[in-house]
């Protein structure tokens, strides 16, 4: 089985679905001859042709709107927005149309589209190239918000997203694109959407995260083990709709929870998880819930981005506070 990076896993899943389903069409800026600025679509235009891999004009609202029109007319478009910092013109289409098409037509027209976008900080990119706006998407009824955290989950979740009959926004953490390799079999087996993944079992503390921050969260769990603390690590993976049951079950056993995310703190998705625990798991808590997040500041340019991101030390500090609380 080949060991591949996350960006190669994205490419593998796209190729698999292009080959399997003739209604799948890719569209986006520079995705054809150039293979995408991160090479996520490398070679796909050569292999599947210009009728399946469409280079669009530089117009994000049009990319999302085209996908809505194609999807309603029976195709399965997989659109790419080059960076999440440029997704905002497409939000109009996602919020006002993609999320509502099925509902407002009572199922007559549907919107089985995927909107992929590389997200997150930590690769020394220029400004507007490092955002994590997943909470904006997760607020919208009718959408799915998915973020993988490993090559295998990128492959399996992207297959599921493309096969899903409803619109899915799929963020790909740029920091993980080439960070590590993992054995991924091109078996066409999708992973479940709407489900958290327990990456590591534990009994003392629940660490909840998603996307690139999973990497630091797992590192923190390893360090905690050396301190005699057994930390469970949950990868939320699908933020909308949220599998709160898995998180509540874990916190019910451990009584302590730290939520880690890269995006700014206020009204970040960690708040939704904290509220869910307060509503349905309050009496199992042995310590106040901790959030380790990006600060409520404008995302700094690259010289300070590692200070902005929730690193292992900050996660460990929060976990130790939670463990010490009596």
């Amino acid at each position: 089985m080949a060991e591949i990076t996350l960006v190669e896993a994205v490419n593998l899943a796209l190729a698999h679905e292009l080959a399997r389903d003739p209604s799948v069409v890719l569209l986006g800026e520079d995705i054809g001859a150039n293979g995408g600025v991160f090479r996520a679509t490398l070679g796909l235009k050569d292999r599947f042709g210009a009728g399946r891999v469409l280079d669009t004009p530089l117009a994000e609202a049009a990319i999302a709107g085209l996908a809505v029109g194609m999807a309603a007319e029976g195709l399965k478009p997989v659109a790419e927005i080059q960076f999440t910092g440029f997704i905002y013109p497409a939000l109009d289409q996602l919020i006002n149309h993609a999320s509502r098409m099925r509902h407002r037509t009572r199922g007559r027209l549907t919107c089985p589209m995927v909107l992929r976008s590389p997200c997150g900080a930590g690769i020394h990119a220029p400004e507007h190239h490092s955002e994590s706006p997943e909470a904006l998407i997760a607020h919208v009824p009718g959408l799915r918000m998915v973020i993988p955290s490993s090559p295998a989950r990128a492959y399996g979740l992207l297959l599921a997203a493309i096969r899903d009959p409803d619109p899915v926004v799929f963020f790909e953490p740029t920091r993980l694109y080439r960070l590590f390799r993992q054995a991924v079999e091109d078996d066409g087996v999708a992973l479940p959407l709407d489900a958290c993944f327990v990456l590591r079992g534990g009994t003392d503390l629940t660490l909840v995260s998603w996307g690139a921050a999973i990497h630091e969260t797992l590192a923190a769990a390893g360090a905690l083990e050396d301190e005699g603390v057994s930390a469970e690590v949950i990868d939320v993976a699908t933020l909308k709709p949220l599998d709160m049951a898995t998180i509540l079950e874990s916190v019910g056993r451990t009584g302590r929870c730290v939520v880690v995310h890269e995006a700014a703190r206020s009204a970040g998705f960690g708040a939704e998880i904290a509220a869910g625990i307060a509503e349905s798991g309050l009496f199992s808590l042995l310590a106040p819930l901790e959030r380790v997040t990006g600060y409520d500041v404008v995302l700094p340019y690259s010289r300070l981005e590692m200070q902005y991101l929730p690193g292992v030390a900050r996660i460990l500090a929060a976990a130790r506070r939670a463990m010490k609380f009596q």
Binding site: A61, A62, G65, V68, G69, A72, G74, L75, H97
Partner: peptide, 14 residues
């Protein structure tokens, strides 16, 4: 104006 890009998408599918 949001529907103009839908029409383009529909036309593209056709």
């Amino acid at each position: 104006a949001t529907q103009v890009t839908h029409a383009a998408g529909v036309a593209c599918a056709m």
